[in-house]
Write a protein that binds this DNA or RNA. Structure first.
Lengths: 294, 294
DNA sequence: AGAGTATGTTGTAATCATACAAAAATGATG
DNA sequence: CATCATTTTTGTATGATTACAACATACTCT
């Protein structure tokens, strides 16, 4: 995906990554910085040298290793790295966290996951999925368990496009629908792990009946291998008991992207259609007092 | 919410905001910086002075106005401001965007919305909502239309806590459940605008029957005024046709927070219960090849 | 032992900050 | 409304700090 220049090289991460490739005194510098990166941005070269127990030129050479023109330049990059990096260094929720603390952590972790997903998204996969969706005679969203709400959400979104769209949250219905599929049907199979046996079976059945099957799932998973096209969403590696939920949010965002892609490609006519739907909802609302919106 | 220090003061924004309060030559400095903030981080004090057509001490004084200890310190802050600020300047999706472009925009906009929500969350509201949920004999999640998937998602999440929990996505069922509520029931009413007539009616009915009604909705909205407790989620002000969806993601994140809060307060016993549920799902999965997880 | 690399020492040039003085703006008074 | 005092703003000169390059030394590995 398009990356902002400062996201390409998260300096702090780079330093961590290359720790082993550094020689002794350079590593001392690296460790001194990692000990308190924020403080390091305020150090002078002399201070940092002392902190790392090396000479000033060593610090300077260290900076050049990380493609800075010199120490001040290095500090600028470091500062930027901290600014972008910090909010995403999402610590796990601790049992003794205050509400404000774990609320923040959850939000930040979610954002971090979105960002990771963003960087992992493959344009070609998205484009191809969007193409299939546009050509669909009928779209079925399949999601079970935790992915059921995602499927439902997708239904609401795509419904606005005047496409026959449905979502199914239980295996039985999914199986029946898959069996009834014909060419022109598109099935979107949403699964975090891509290893749920039932979901894979159903995807296969749908394909055997001529349907296009798009998987929103982990790359390389059994489900991914069964699908016509895949949008890869790598599972996050958080084993934290408290927040196994960000995955869905990433899936939802992907749905947003697909829906947007379909809308864009369909052109202006359909945007009017959308407006009409919005209009038709108005009578069920109370009059707005403030600045409320649709 | 707890704010990271560098998020408090977006220096670049602060400079823009205080432009009018600056005197002539200070403004010249400000303008020189705003002309190309990224370049400014690489300037020396002399270069910036020349660029702004003022003397070096003026630049230095300018820096102190923005509570920096000096010019280098100012540059550090500026660099951080650029780094944090940039990714959230989420432009709207343009009809001629490439897939990669609008995918990025949607992701960034979603992250921006989460961040906004994060900063807008009130700890007291969350804490109070969590308290009510813990004491619940039974929880009902109500969400209609776009919020239906959120309600469903909440059901899945809270189901793990061994609490009688259900979600209802249509007005009829919600009305019936509300009518059958008694003291000890907790209804969580999810609505983006908080102005959908039906939802407000139902919330009132639930309250009249003794239920505690928690609203996840816009502050100050009719629904908010009808509820026992509110978790305020301000509607985002994006009028963009293409992405009216971030709202749900924020709601989902709030659900995550509530669920986490309940889990934490319930203590360790329930964490074992969670593990058991995870275990019970395993037999339905294919064996893992790589590093796949729950 | 000696080539080659890594690290430290010294000195210089730059960058930055302070003190002070000049200039401009303000405003009070006759 | 002119003049002068006072404050504020701005620039000059100077001194302090910082960063870097050139060179020298120490270390490493064959």
């Amino acid at each position: 995906m398009t990356r902002k220049p400062h996201m390409d090289d998260n300096l702090l991460e780079t330093i961590k990554a290359r720790l082993t490739t550094l020689n002794r005194s350079e590593r001392k510098v690296a460790e001194a910085i990692l000990r308190d990166p924020a403080a390091a941005t305020r150090y002078s070269i002399a201070t940092l040298a002392r902190e790392a127990d090396v000479s000033e030129p060593t610090v300077n050479r260290f900076c050049r290793v990380f493609s800075a023109t010199g120490f001040p330049d290095f500090k600028i990059h470091l500062a930027q790295s901290i600014a972008t990096g910090t909010p995403y260094v999402s610590q796990n929720v601790q049992p003794d966290d205050t509400v404000a603390q774990f609320a923040d952590k959850i939000m930040l972790a979610t954002m971090a996951n979105l960002d990771r997903a963003r960087q992992g998204l493959a344009e070609r996969e998205l484009a191809s999925a969007i193409d299939y969706l546009i050509q669909a005679r009928q779209i079925h969203f399949f999601g079970m368990g935790g992915s059921a709400p995602v499927a439902l959400d997708a239904q609401y979104k795509f419904f606005r496009f005047n496409i026959p769209v449905m979502s199914y949250q239980d295996a039985l219905m999914q199986r029946m629908v898959a069996a009834g599929c014909t060419t022109g049907d598109v099935v979107v199979s949403i699964s975090y792990t891509g290893r749920t046996r039932e979901i894979i079976d159903i995807a296969r059945i749908a394909r055997e009946n001529g349907a296009t099957v798009i998987g929103i799932t982990a790359p390389g998973s059994p489900l991914a291998n069964t699908c016509t096209a895949v949008v890869s969403v790598s599972p996050t590696e958080d084993t934290d008991v408290y927040m196994p939920m960000s995955s869905r949010i990433v899936q939802l965002a992907v749905i947003d992207i697909l829906a947007t892609g379909v809308t864009l490609k369909r052109g202006v006519d359909f945007q009017n259609h959308l407006k009409n739907i919005k209009q038709s909802l108005r009578p069920t609302r109370l009059p707005e007092t403030g600045s409320g919106k649709e």
